[in-house]
């Protein structure tokens, strides 16, 4: 489903030359939940941006559902981002002047969905993340966890195959982080492929597989036989 071969990314600012990724080979199955770990600067975000078609590799190949992403032009990349990929950022990246509902509608503005249908699907997406009752709130009227849930609703509203999350719990407290993980695991159970960048060990335990990066290289792969279920942790915590 996702296949990356000999992927290299070099940032050349003219003054410095940074090798952010070196010869990365990676395959992610459809419906898999993969965590990417590594110290700061190890190239995790760089990889995710390339997988998310926001950036291009310097060399190597990237196939998404058999599509050779390297060969696509900008508009085709935009189309892939719109239909096949849902991005979740550490800093939420909601549009501040719009309420939650309209934030969730934004991806559909670029996929030719009519206004009524858009509204309906945005509501449904907000219901999925349990935030329908806050649909008309603006981002600054929401907590961090709620904002991230709006961002997740936005990521899944076009029904993407892949959800890419770059440290989605990085700005959240433990409990909100767990709630977000529960939602992401739920989406994964419903069939979405999830790739999640984190540097928190506990968070990475929710994935089925963890790849470790160091200095732009994939150094270790770890299969987690029994991923932690965020739902369960939340339930246990609330009982205490």
């Amino acid at each position: 489903m996702i296949r990356v071969e000999h992927l290299t990314k070099v940032y050349d600012t003219g003054i410095v030359r940074v090798q952010a990724l070196t010869d990365v080979n990676l395959e992610v199955r459809k419906g898999e939940f993969l965590a990417v770990m590594g110290p700061s600067g190890s190239g995790k975000s760089t990889l995710l941006n390339i997988l998310g078609c926001l950036d291009r590799a310097t060399s190597g190949s990237y196939h998404l559902e058999g599509i050779p992403i390297n060969t696509l032009d900008e508009n085709e990349l935009a189309h892939i981002r719109n239909r096949k990929i849902g991005f979740v950022f550490q800093t939420f990246n909601l549009l501040p002047r719009m309420d939650a509902l309209r934030n969730v509608e934004v991806p559909m503005l670029y996929s030719g969905v009519g206004p009524r249908e858009r509204r309906k699907r945005a509501w449904e997406a907000l219901e999925k993340v349990g935030l329908a009752d806050h649909a008309l709130h603006r981002p600054n009227e929401l907590s961090g966890g709620q904002r991230q849930r709006v961002a997740i609703a936005r990521a899944l509203v076009n029904d993407p195959d892949i959800i890419l999350a770059d440290e989605p719990t990085g700005n959240l407290d433990t409990r909100s982080g767990l709630e977000i993980m529960a939602i992401i695991q739920g989406l994964n159970r419903q069939g979405a492929t999830v790739i999640l960048v984190t540097h928190e060990h506990e968070i990475s335990r929710h994935a089925q597989r963890v790849v470790h990066f160091r200095d732009g290289r994939l150094v270790r792969t770890e299969v987690i036989a029994e991923p932690v279920q965020a739902e369960k942790t939340l339930r246990e915590n609330s009982q205490q």
């Binding site: 900008e74 508009n75 239909r83 991005f87 934004v106 670029y110």
Partner: peptide, 10 residues
């Protein structure tokens, strides 16, 4: 940036 990330073309 956000709009581009969710699929806006240039």
């Amino acid at each position: 940036g956000v709009r581009m990330a969710v699929g806006a073309r240039r």
